[in-house]
Design a protein around this nucleic acid. Structure first.
Length: 665
RNA sequence: GCCCAGAUAGCUCAGUCGGUAGAGCAACGCAUUCGUAAUGCGUAGGUCGUGGGUUCGAUUCCCACUCUGGGCUCCA
């Protein structure tokens, strides 16, 4: 029996007996690797561990602690879920069940339109644990289309997938991505069988047996449309998470708990920031004083930066005649996302869903010269969008919100420079709020849905691309993701616990200048069409505020904290001195209050800590005598006998430093 | 809009197999005047989300609506 030679990713090679499998290879390298292996890759193609190796193959072992390995675990766990459901709910049809970020889901259709309840999850999870305990093998097989249809004869959704793949292949086209995930590429349908009763169509790879799984948890049930089509049948989806170890699973669950603790909706109530009274209607918020002061600081900051940045401030009303939105095209493109019209004696009015049409009116109000460009109009403009009831989500998805909105009118020649300057501007504003990790997405033309000439699209896309390159920024290109009127750059930030939020956007627009017939007189004394940029930094102030609450976990930095300092007299006798401290701090510009000695000192400190105040000052006999304070900073150690003057100096310089970072002075 | 779940005191929640409800915290009062994360005692507070239906009687069962949560779809 001859040996075969295998090369490994590190460049080394290894000899193994003929007929060796990926698993044999892993075992030959070490028992730890054998245990951690969940799949392999032969010449770049992912395969099961049981796959035999050929001479000269490039082989990598996929271990369970890598993204690829977890993907295999999760996908395999999804199969176990499907089997458990078919056992517990006879007649259930299963559809697709992919691995997703952090977990997996599987979509089912239950007989007689039955639905899953939360309680069902427990029973299903228990059944899954039995399946894991039985250590059922995942046995791969490949079938012709006809055989496959036979095997899945009682699974109409599977048959539908097979038929779609079949017709796509007959038509010479490739199967779409969704279907490609379910079948092998070479015209064969592959399937993985766990038991006589349960087999699922799948490209794989899978773990060798269900015993390799076990660190999972089912999380929730929901509805989901078949193939994401609103008109299609509503299926029942079960979500779960799965990991390579108890530790990794627990870490993930802790992370979810942490996110829950930071939930801006919870913190907004606890800290009395804002509320969503049901009397107002869904998706509409009222700002309480503590939330409002933070918002005011954010808005002041935004105005300051825009003033510095060469923007001109404008104000526009909340309503406009329907004619304006016909001109802008909003009524034909987005009518279903607008608030319903108000009929009035002299016409039909709509709440504005965007500020741009009104800014275009300002631009068009008189003749413009090239000398005025770029013209940057800025407004904290409140808009109303009819978000569908089921999509509302705290401040993150809301029906009335305020954009830090600007429309920049410039010449084609100015575009690249303007975008480059915008990128600097955006990033420096976001940094002021404690964000320092960004992701950039460049969205390009959707060939099915766009206006404007190919030439101008190419030019604008190139301008965006150049600006990103010139800043040395890495970005993902999202082909076809642009709005119909022009390409755009979207900027995501990463928050304190690693979540990503899409905040800023810079969008080119060739459509509105056309529709509003906007012009400028050039140096050549001819009329030209300007290009327009839409851009928002925070995006929606409300949403940005929500993201900040979660980013800071409610502990706002000193410059933003609604109450920056609280003074606690040790006993009633120190009340007058406490008032004096308050007065001096207030005179120095601090937002400060005092808590009288009606409650114990410990109690008042606890309350202040729960309120996440940046500074608690305790004043007693010693302090009164020496004009000092005891300083208890958030997240730091207590410091006694600090001269009041010194604390005030420290405090004001801290806030000034934050402001100088923030305000760029 | 669609699927599922939910709505009880300001907050967090318990409870009523149909006979109009209870705790902790918060609030208020009294006592305590205290040096760094909960002092004690007491008082008040709820048409049990809204509207209909069934019933002698509904917070409880049924229906509709509103709002909320998790998803799907959508997101200019």
């Amino acid at each position: 029996m001859s040996n075969i030679t295998i090369s490994l990713p590190d460049g080394s090679s290894r000899e193994l007996p003929e007929d060796s499998t990926v698993l044999d290879l892993a075992a030959s390298i070490g028992s730890g690797l054998r245990k951690a292996a969940v799949a392999g890759a032969i010449d770049g193609r992912e395969v099961d561990l049981g796959t035999p190796l050929h001479d000269g193959a490039q082989v990598a072992i996929i271990t369970n602690d890598t993204d690829a390995g977890r993907h295999v675990l999760r996908h395999s766990t999804a199969h176990v879920l499907a089997q458990a459901v078919t056992l517990l709910f006879p007649g259930a049809k299963f559809t697709i069940g992919p691995a997703i970020e952090n977990g997996f889901y599987y979509d089912f259709e239950l007989p007689d339109g039955k639905t899953f309840s939360e309680e069902d999850l427990e029973a299903i999870e228990a059944k899954m644990r039995e399946i894991v305990k039985e250590n059922q093998p995942f046995v791969r097989s490949e079938h012709s289309m006809a055989e496959a249809k036979e095997i899945f004869a009682d699974q109409p959704y599977k048959v539908e997938i097979i038929e779609r793949v079949e017709s796509a292949q007959e038509g010479g086209g490739a199967a779409d991505a969704e279907d490609a995930g379910e079948v092998a590429g070479d015209g064969k349908i592959s399937a993985y069988r766990n038991t006589d009763q349960f087999v699922d169509m799948c490209v794989g790879p899978h773990v060798p047996s269900t015993g390799k799984l076990g660190f999972f948890k089912l999380q929730r049930v929901s509805g989901a449309y078949w193939r994401g089509n609103e008109k299609g049948p509503m299926l029942q989806r079960i979500y779960g998470t799965a990991w390579e170890s108890k530790q990794a699973l627990n870490d993930h669950l802790h992370q979810l708990e942490e996110a829950l603790k930071r939930d801006h909706r919870k913190l907004a109530v606890e800290q009395d920031l804002l509320s969503f009274p049901s009397e107002l209607g869904g998706g509409l918020a009222v700002w309480h004083p503590k939330g409002a002061i933070i918002r005011k600081l954010m808005e002041d900051y935004s105005r300051f930066r825009h003033e510095q940045g060469g923007y001109e401030f404008v104000y526009t009303p909340h309503l406009a005649d329907s004619g304006l939105f016909e001109t802008s095209g909003h009524l034909s493109w987005y009518a279903e996302g607008m608030y319903p019209p108000m009929e009035m004696d002299n016409g039909t009015y709509y709440p504005k869903p965007m500020n741009c049409p009104m800014h275009c009116l300002i631009y068009g109000s008189r003749q413009r010269s090239y000398r005025e460009l770029p013209l940057r109009l800025f407004e904290l403009g409140t808009v109303y969008r009819y978000e569908r009831a089921g999509t509302l989500h705290g401040l993150m998805r809301i029906r009335g919100f305020t954009q830090d909105d600007s429309h920049i009118y410039c010449t084609k020649e100015q575009l690249a420079e303007e975008i480059a300057a915008l990128l600097d501007f955006v990033l420096s504003v976001l940094r002021a709020f404690g964000f320092d990790e960004f992701t950039f997405n460049l969205s390009t033309k959707d060939p099915e849905k766009y206006v404007g000439s190919d030439e101008i699209w190419d030019e604008a896309t190139e301008a965006l691309r150049e600006a990103l390159d010139a800043h040395g920024l890495e970005y993902a290109v999202k082909e076809g993701d642009a709005a119909f009127y022009g390409p755009k750059i979207d900027i995501d930030v990463r928050d304190a616990i690693g979540r990503s939020w899409q905040l800023s956007t810079i969008q080119a627009d060739f459509q509105l200048p056309e529709r509003f017939d906007l012009e400028y007189v050039g140096a050549d004394n001819n009329r030209h069409r300007p290009i327009m940029l839409h851009r928002a930094l925070m995006g929606s102030i409300e949403r940005f505020f929500g993201v900040l609450v979660e980013h800071y976990a409610g502990a706002f930095p000193t410059w933003l904290a609604p109450v920056q300092v609280r003074v606690l007299p040790v006993a009633e006798a120190h009340g007058a001195y406490a008032d004096e401290v308050v007065a001096q701090l207030r005179a120095a510009g601090a937002r400060v209050d005092a808590a009288a000695a009606d409650d114990g000192l410990g109690k008042r400190i606890r309350t202040a800590k729960m309120d996440k105040l940046p500074y608690v000052l305790v004043v007693g006999d010693d302090d009164m005598a020496a004009k000092t304070v005891g300083v208890n900073p958030r997240g730091g150690d207590v410091e006694r006998d600090v001269p009041l003057d010194e604390f005030i100096a420290r405090f004001t310089s801290e806030v000034a430093d934050a402001a100088s970072v923030a305000f760029g002075s």
